[in-house]
Design a binder for these strands. Structure first.
Lengths: 294, 294
DNA sequence: AATCACATTTTATAGTTGCAAAATGCAATT
DNA sequence: AATTGCATTTTGCAACTATAAAATGTGATT
């Protein structure tokens, strides 16, 4: 009847926050600090913490607040029990993407038709459609209805996307404002190492994909030019859909990881133009190996 | 109560269509053809034609359809009477932009506040906000409300934008898929010439701005890579807002036009890398001259 | 055969209202 | 002084209705 609560998402965010800040058992979790961090008020933070308390991840002390009740390692075990289902909006979003890629839709669809098919109220559907429009694979027609664009479907777009990424990332690295970010580099190294130490086999496809994107976005962020970063983020969001359809070739991951680390090495020894050239071939190389199902 | 009719827009579109296809007095305007062209059904075309009939631009013959009643030159005279006001959505959009640039808003605003200020229903406000979000200068907060981004305001973003454009356009031109578009080139030459023959003084700021953007987007379209084109279109939409705030230095226009024509010349004589290099300095040159008011 | 004109069906927006969630103010506690 | 925990206010999503516009099917006209 009323809207979906933020608290499930906030719960996840808090766990991620705790992890990435390497917090320890017993550390204090002030409401306002978390609220500022996630750009919401204290209310949804409270309700998220109450839920984490029920799961035993945090401990409440009357009038003193919430404290981390377990160590980092223990969280993973507790967390996996919940079996992360994609939240409502995301689930429908992915179904639309699937149905589109498998050709279930005509190019042109009406809102009412979509409401019927997915059994969602209009408000929610529109939110999702706007998100898709933002990603660029559907558009509002002037009269009634929406029209899917070709972007996702064709082999040609797929290659054009790789070229775009390769050019943007390389050029971003060559900008005079480019400045390696020590902290970002350190974290990237950690992730790539984790990926090397067993991550290849155990991590989910989504996790591997995210780690890869994070790496590239971190690099572009170093350019100090928000437009380059936005462009990369935008195309990566679109890419996510296609890559989900593709079987990851895990045997290629060691090479990929090594190349990532090599780029960091080159940058840290001030060999920027070499790094940029290598980055270009690194990205274009990836496009040749994978083959979309569609 | 119900939605705004498409017909005013369609009327304008039909006039533009007639002009750009160099149609003559007496030519037939079939409903279905126009409907397909504008991607709507026949209904709004009908109602638009009925309105054009009242203005004497088209003539209806029972059971035979609508025919152009005047010559092209006469249309301009008849049309100007209507005094094109920006349509409702666009008006509010521009007010929001103005109010934002003049600092009337806090960074963070709620939907209700905006509804009160502009006295628009939520549905319409949301449509506008989504458009703004798509352009990248506002974003939905996780909880309630929206947050304006810094993008528009800072000198630094302004320069970053020019760099982005220069890089993208240059690189687009260097792609192996780049292929000059004879028809596009011809039309571009025409426009640039018109601009030279009196356009400098008479054309409105918006018209001059549009001509410039069209030129650059046409060039990037020749790359055959939709991602480059999207990126340029996106940043140009954003630029429109800022440039509106700036007084055009009309004395620079002759040089700009000459440079545009020079780029076409270079491309047509197969000196592509020269053209690309020249394009880069052309864009960066423009950034140095103009100074934002803000 | 193409196209229009009209009648009918379908669609989407404006305008409600109810309510749970989010935001916020402030006294109580440490 | 910082932070919680509760009470109050504000917000925005969902659900519904009415209605004008858009889409469409079909017989009539050229």
């Amino acid at each position: 009847m009323a809207r979906n609560s933020l608290s499930p998402r906030i719960s996840t965010d808090i766990i991620e926050f705790v992890k990435s800040n390497a917090m320890r058992k017993g550390d204090h979790l002030p409401l306002q600090m978390l609220a500022d961090n996630f750009r919401v008020s204290r209310a949804p933070i409270m309700s998220a913490l109450r839920k984490l308390e029920q799961r035993g991840i945090v401990r409440a002390e009357p009038n003193r607040g919430y404290f981390l009740a377990v160590n980092l390692e223990a969280i993973d075990a507790l967390q996996s029990e919940t079996g992360e289902a994609a939240d409502g909006d995301d689930a429908i979003y992915l179904r639309i993407a699937d149905d589109r890629l498998s050709g279930k839709f005509a190019e042109r669809v009406s809102e009412n038709e979509l409401m019927r098919v997915y059994a969602v109220p209009r408000t929610r559907l529109l939110k999702i459609l706007h998100r898709i429009a933002d990603e660029g694979w559907i558009e509002r027609l002037p009269g009634n209805g929406w029209s899917f664009k070709q972007t996702l479907m064709s082999r040609k777009s797929y290659e054009a996307g790789y070229i775009f990424r390769a050019v943007i990332e390389q050029q971003a690295m060559l900008l005079p404002t480019f400045q390696p970010d020590a902290d970002g580099f350190r974290k990237a190294r950690e992730t790539q190492n984790d990926l090397g130490n067993g991550g290849y086999e155990h991590w989910s496809r989504a996790e591997i994909f995210k780690a890869n994107n994070d790496f590239h976005e971190m690099l572009v962020a170093c350019s100090g030019n928000e437009f380059f970063l936005d462009a990369i983020k935008r195309i990566n969001r679109l890419r996510r859909l296609l890559e989900y359809q593709i079987t990851i070739d895990r045997s290629r991951l060691p090479k990929q990881t090594a190349e990532h680390l090599h780029i960091l090495d080159l940058l840290e020894s001030d060999r920027r133009s070499e790094a940029a050239a290598f980055l270009y071939t690194h990205i274009m190389g990836a496009s040749r190996i994978k083959t979309p199902k569609v």
